[in-house]
Design a protein around this nucleic acid. Structure first.
Lengths: 204, 204, 204, 204
DNA sequence: TATGAATGAGGATTCATTCAT
DNA sequence: AATGAATGAATCCTCATTCAT
């Protein structure tokens, strides 16, 4: 009998090595050889477990999404009010795990490559929809429909934009970023915002 | 007899072909051969005019930045009040030219590659600082120092996040995105926001 | 506790899977992995029973030769006159088992590879000599020496050529091919050709 | 301006190197690297001129067919009677060029691989039909329809079978083989065999 | 006996770059 | 100024083989 139960261990090793290699060398310099070296295994093993480089990249992106989801879902489970839920989503997206340099690099690569690789595009769409749906669902319990949509879009953009800026500037100021998102959330929930002119809403 | 004055024409041709190729095939599939084909010239010419692929990519990113700058600066020139200036910056960033699919793809690539290519990173830093400095300068004329910083960071994130979301969803809803940014701007300028706790500001 | 008596079963399984894989995928696409999959066993087993791929291929060719030999020898056993013997050889070479598509493909491969693999070349030489010796021996009982040699060479070529043509055209017209060989045999033995029965001509 | 007119030269070089490599190493051991080495060029050039290994192999087979055709067509042009034409076909197929060892090996490979590569299969079909159509056309001028068909099939098989046997036994006895084909031709045309000249028999 | 995990050499192919013309 | 022929290193991938279990 061969070694049993290696599959999940090797898959995890290789996924981690992939994310780390993307972080260190970038997407176009991430080769099968580098990944397998980082994982301390031979290069053939990648095809044994994943079938090819493309599938490994896809699995890596999937692992990244799963980790983000874990951060958000764990916090959502402890939330009761809509505000708590929104806070949980913001906090999950600004969790330390999301700012580890290799993770940041891999996310950027994900966004950039998704345009040209259908499988990555699909994962990205799912992720984006989940974020938006979570936000909208929570806002809808506290705001009128049009405002809930607008707030969800705004907060989603805020999260991505702040994350992006924090990521580009080397993951410093994460807490400031989170505070700004927090403030935007408060503004929307407290109704202090001026309404978008009706004509603008109609154009959607 | 050598043709005179070909240099600027060829350079522009090649830069356009590069952006278009990134848009069509993605970064890692953008080859010297594809670029030269798209430009209708031979592959050797790229090295003649740019020295190498890297330099051409850099020049292309520079061209992208210049175009964005043009959109913003043109609008800024016609602005008088701080609010006008902020509006000009928002509008410049949401100008149609910034949502052409190849441009969007190229921007994403730029952000993603900048991490691993110092020359691109430098351009990106310059761009980011310019945006932030423009925003901060305008806000500083209307808000107290701490609020101006916060507002500048928030609006910068808002612009990037909305742009990113619009870009990822195929450049639909650009106007809605702009309206959301507009509203954020109004909120910050009208002083309806609750202050971020001082301790948080100090941590920066 | 080891299973006893598995060896001949496994060897036969693997040989059959090899011939079938050559038939389906061709020689250069016949891999150890494909063979073991077709046989429903693991890939390591091939080395356990045969020592390597080369030996398995050789054993497969040997099995093919044995099968042809069986077809011929069985018929020869029931033959009494030289003419019967020649007929038995012709019929054995045109037996249905020799036109099963995987068998045809494997024979072609055999002929083509034998040039570069000494072990296959040896098997092929033995086979060729056996055919020629059988034919010559029978002809020698009915014809003068020079004519017997010529007839043996001619009939051997006829058999191979007709087999090849039938094989290349998808094993249709096997009966016509056999009839043509039959007629050649008759011509050589009688000094003139007996007409092919009209019904046979009509079937074309 | 680059070197002009290299294309036909390089293509011919590479095709010759391919046939020679098949002859020396066999099909499955014929690598791009070996071919390019035999041609004295770099390996990249194959893709420059042929697009890939498959196309080069196809072009090589095509060159082989063209050479055979040249041998036959040249002789056919000097033939007037049906018998002359049939003789021309036989002689063309037994021309020395068709027994050069690399050519023989390549033909065998061609036959064996054609089963699994549609493009080779197509070439083979064309070749087979041409031979058969040439033979049948000539026989039809001298024999009744049913006999013409039978004779054409028989001679085609004879040619292939003799060629195959000669090829497998190292291209010795080519003249004997041709004499046997000749005799078969005579038998079919005359309804009886002309004796092979004794001198010919003695040469064995 | 049998498995399938693991290796790493070798395959075709791609590509930026160089350079003779 | 411009070409595209030519290179060869690097890429992904395949595969026969080995071996611990």
């Amino acid at each position: 009998m061969p070694k049993l139960g290696m599959e999940p261990i090797r898959r995890r090793q290789l996924i981690d090595a992939t994310i780390s290699s993307i972080g260190r060398y970038g997407y176009s310099e991430t080769t099968v050889h580098r990944i397998s070296q980082a994982a301390g295994v031979s290069s053939g093993i990648i095809h044994h477990y994943f079938g090819g480089k493309g599938e490994l990249l896809e699995a890596s992106m999937r692992a990244l999404l799963a980790e983000l989801r874990r951060e958000v879902v764990g916090r959502l489970a402890r939330a009761t009010t809509p505000r708590d839920r929104l806070q949980a989503i913001v906090d999950g997206n600004f969790a330390p795990s999301q700012f580890a340099p290799p993770v940041v690099a891999a996310w950027l690569v994900f966004w950039s490559q998704a345009r040209h690789e259908p499988r990555l595009a699909r994962l990205q769409r799912i992720n984006h929809r989940r974020l938006h749906s979570n936000l909208h669902h929570a806002f809808a319990q506290a705001l009128p429909p049009a405002a809930a949509i607008r707030a969800a879009k705004g907060l989603a953009a805020m999260i991505d934009g702040l994350w992006l800026n924090a990521a580009l500037s080397g993951a410093r100021d994460v807490e400031v970023a989170r505070a700004i998102a927090q403030r935007f959330l408060d503004l929307e929930l407290n109704g202090q915002g001026a309404a978008i002119p009706p004509a603008m809403n109609d154009r959607r």
